Computed example of a mutant assay.
Amino acid sequence: MSQGATIAANTRPYANLPPINVALFEAKARRGLSFDEIAKAIEKDEVWVASAFYGQAKFTEKELQKLAEILGINESELSGALGSHWWPNRGDLGPMPPTDPVLYRLYEGVMVYGPAIKAIIHEKFGDGIMSMIDCKVSVDKKPDPKGDRIVLAFDGKFLPYSKW
């Protein structure tokens, strides 16, 4: 995107985002930054930062200050819109099943492998769940002769049934 570029409000995946979140994406594009570069600057991981851009996680005031500096956004505007009185709308996934091809394949993966993963979790840990609170998610690229591979990892805390 060029300097001053904007994202059309009806463009997926931005269609249902508040204007301040769209402004984050626009500023990121204008600066030519990756989520990883932003994450390193605010001492978070890249998946968490991307989720916060989508309104699924909440920046601290300190993170908002640094983010405003990195993205060249007015700090008071950013803090006013995403500060202490704003709360994430977690889990707003859009249509189910998803229509975006990448999201659909992730959904498909959970639908196909979910019961097997659940069975293995129970075998290894007992009756319980993997918490998404304080869950670390990583996306890595692994070269392969047949074509690059995507490696997704969810690093979540096990919570026995008796704890939830």
Rank of each mutant, 00 (worst) to 15 (best):
G83D: 05
F53D: 11
L78H: 12
G128P: 02
G109I: 11
A39L: 06
V137D: 01
E37M: 03
S76D: 14
H122I: 15
G80D: 06
I133V: 13
L33M: 06
Y104R: 15
K62L: 08
K124Y: 14
K28T: 01
E26L: 02
I42N: 00
I73N: 05
D45T: 06
K40M: 12
A29E: 11
V139Y: 06
S34C: 03
K141H: 04
I121Q: 10
A50M: 12
L93Q: 09
I73W: 12
L64A: 09
G109Q: 13
G91R: 07
D36G: 08
G80S: 14
K28Y: 00
S76R: 10
G114H: 14
Y104K: 14
E69G: 07
G128H: 09
P95Y: 03
F35G: 08
E77D: 14
F53C: 05
E61S: 14
I70E: 13
M132K: 10
G72L: 06
I38H: 02
R31G: 00
K124M: 13
N89F: 00
I120C: 02
S131A: 12
Y104G: 06
E108H: 13
S51Q: 13
P88E: 03
L78C: 06
H85E: 10
V102M: 09
L103H: 11
V47I: 13
Q56A: 06
I120D: 15
L67D: 11
K118Y: 00
G114D: 08
K124I: 09
A39R: 09
Y104T: 13
V137Y: 07
A41S: 09
E69W: 07
L64P: 15
Y104S: 06
G83L: 08
S79T: 15
Y107P: 06
L71Q: 04
